[in-house]
Computed example of a mutant assay.
Amino acid sequence: MDTRDAADDRKKSDGRGPFEKFVEAVNQQVSRAPFFVVCLGIVVAWLASYPLFSSGKNWQYVIHTVSSVISLLLLVLLENAGRRSQESVHEKLNVLAEGMAALMKSEGRDDPALREAEQKLNEAIGLEERH
């Protein structure tokens, strides 16, 4: 029987590349209060910079450009993190379903309802890959 600790397994190299590690780090940071404070600081700095611009339109272009670029980059990074998280959840659910199907198969030799449920469960495993 394998007695490895799950925490030890997480510490080992998981095959993620630099981009995936970067995405994970960004995902962890943007969901915390310091990121909100940084965003608030950008808005305050923008508001304070009004006297430095010759026209109000140029002043507005600055915040629109900065916010658009930051939003686009964060959207791409967070979508990547969300996709990987969703794939991980599906994989875990598939493993649980496969284990449940194996248990149902071993226990349902004499129970037709349990055999039918096991068959439906086996058909459902990997359903997201077919769609």
Rank of each mutant, 00 (worst) to 15 (best):
P112K: 03
N94L: 05
S71F: 11
C39K: 09
R84V: 02
A6W: 00
K57R: 05
M1N: 09
V89W: 13
V43D: 13
T65Y: 14
T65I: 05
E20H: 15
R83M: 11
A6P: 14
L103Y: 07
L40R: 05
F36C: 01
V69R: 02
R10V: 08
S67C: 07
M100Q: 06
F36L: 08
D2S: 12
F35N: 04
Q119W: 02
N58D: 15
E123M: 10
F19E: 13
Q119T: 01
L72W: 07
E98D: 10
I63H: 05
H90N: 10
G108A: 04
E128R: 09
L114G: 02
G126H: 10
S71D: 05
K21F: 04
S54D: 15
R32K: 15
A33K: 09
A6S: 09
A6M: 03
M100L: 13
R10F: 09
E24L: 11
F19L: 15
R130F: 01
A48C: 02
L73R: 04
E107N: 07
S68V: 01
E87D: 13
G108Q: 03
V95A: 13
W59D: 07
R84K: 10
F36Q: 08
D2Y: 04
T3F: 11
A7P: 04
P18L: 10
Q86C: 08
L72C: 14
E129P: 00
Y50N: 07
A102R: 09
E98R: 13
E123C: 07
G108Y: 11
S71I: 01
S71E: 05
E87P: 00
S67T: 04
L40A: 03
A45D: 11
L75Q: 07
K12P: 01
A102Y: 05
N27D: 08
V76K: 04
S88P: 02
K57A: 12
A81L: 02
K57Q: 09
R10T: 02
A101F: 03
F36H: 11
Q29H: 06
Q60T: 08
E128H: 15
Q60P: 04
L103N: 06
R115K: 15
Q29S: 03
S55N: 14
N27T: 03
R130P: 08
A25V: 02
F19D: 12
S49W: 02
E91V: 01
V95F: 13
K12V: 05
L74S: 01
E116A: 06
L74V: 01
G17T: 06
R83H: 10
R32E: 15
L52T: 04
Q29D: 11
F36M: 05
E20R: 04
W46D: 12
I63Q: 06
H90K: 10
L74G: 03
A101V: 13
D110E: 14
K21Q: 12
S49A: 12
V43A: 13
L75I: 05
I70P: 03
E129T: 03
L127M: 07
D110I: 00
F22H: 08
R16W: 12
I63G: 10
E118C: 14
L127G: 07
G41V: 04
F22R: 03
V76P: 00
G99A: 11
S88E: 10
A45N: 06
K57H: 12
L93W: 13
K11Y: 11
L93R: 03
V23R: 01
G17C: 14
S55F: 02
N58S: 15
K120A: 13
I42S: 06
Y50Q: 08
L77G: 00
A97Q: 11
L75S: 14
R10I: 04
G126D: 12
E129I: 06
